[in-house]
Amino acid sequence: MHHSLFLMGAPGGGGNSSVLLIYLGLMFVVFYFFMIRPQSQKAKKQKAFMSNLQKGDKVVTIAGIHGTIYKINDDNATMQLEVSPGSYLKIEKSALSMEWTMAQQKAAEPTK
């Protein structure tokens, strides 16, 4: 029963709406910091990743196909991916996995 006293606020019910507004405000702040902000930061990183791609980069697609960028096509939305010597696939840039590509590039770096 002590929970209902807390939510009621001041006698007369006037404090009830202010407590509710505080809860809603706190929920929005938490939602922003745990959902909206990380998503926008990830989108910025993805955009930077896509714009920095160049011939010779080793990449991984979202389907798990590993290859090397052979050519970025004139439309700037597709590329030729060399999957084995002399074997090429035309893929959309959006089909690349930033996370898997970064993990693969880290694994390929020599340890110091």
Rank of each mutant, 00 (worst) to 15 (best):
A103N: 09
M50C: 04
R37H: 14
G56R: 08
M8Y: 14
N52Q: 13
S94R: 12
H2S: 10
I91W: 08
K112D: 04
S84I: 05
K44G: 08
Q80W: 13
H3Y: 08
A107L: 15
N76Y: 02
I62Y: 01
F49L: 02
I69E: 05
M8G: 08
D57Q: 03
E109T: 03
A108M: 11
A107I: 12
E92I: 01
K45Y: 00
A95E: 13
P85I: 06
S51D: 03
M27W: 04
M27P: 00
F34H: 04
K45D: 06
T101S: 14
F31Q: 02
L26P: 00
H3P: 00
S40P: 00
T78R: 07
R37L: 14
K42R: 09
Q41Y: 01
L20M: 12
Y23E: 07
G56A: 08
R37A: 15
D74R: 13
D74E: 14
F49W: 05
H3N: 11
F28S: 10
Q105T: 01
G56W: 12
N16E: 09
M35N: 12
L89K: 14
Y32K: 11
K93E: 00
T68V: 13
F34I: 12
L96Y: 12
N73R: 09
M79R: 02
T111I: 11
K47S: 12
L89M: 15
L89C: 02
H66P: 00
A103L: 14
P38R: 03
N16H: 06
L96P: 06
Y70H: 15
I69M: 09
M102H: 04
P85L: 10
G14S: 07
Q105D: 07
T101I: 03
S40W: 04
V83S: 00
A103Q: 15
S40G: 00
S84H: 13
S18C: 01
W100L: 14
Q46L: 15
A107N: 11
L53V: 06
K45Q: 09
V19D: 03
A103D: 08
S4A: 05
F31P: 01
K106I: 06
F34Q: 07
L24Q: 03
T111F: 05
S18K: 10
A103V: 05
D75Y: 09
G15A: 11
K42G: 03
F6I: 04
E109C: 04
A10E: 08
A95W: 10
L20H: 09
Y23N: 10
G86T: 11
K90C: 12
S18N: 05
N52L: 02
Q41M: 11
P11N: 04
K45C: 00
E92K: 08
P38M: 04
I36V: 15
V60Q: 04
M27I: 08
P110V: 13
K44Q: 14
F31R: 02
T68S: 13
V30C: 04
Q105F: 06
I62T: 14
S94C: 05
S4V: 01
S4N: 05
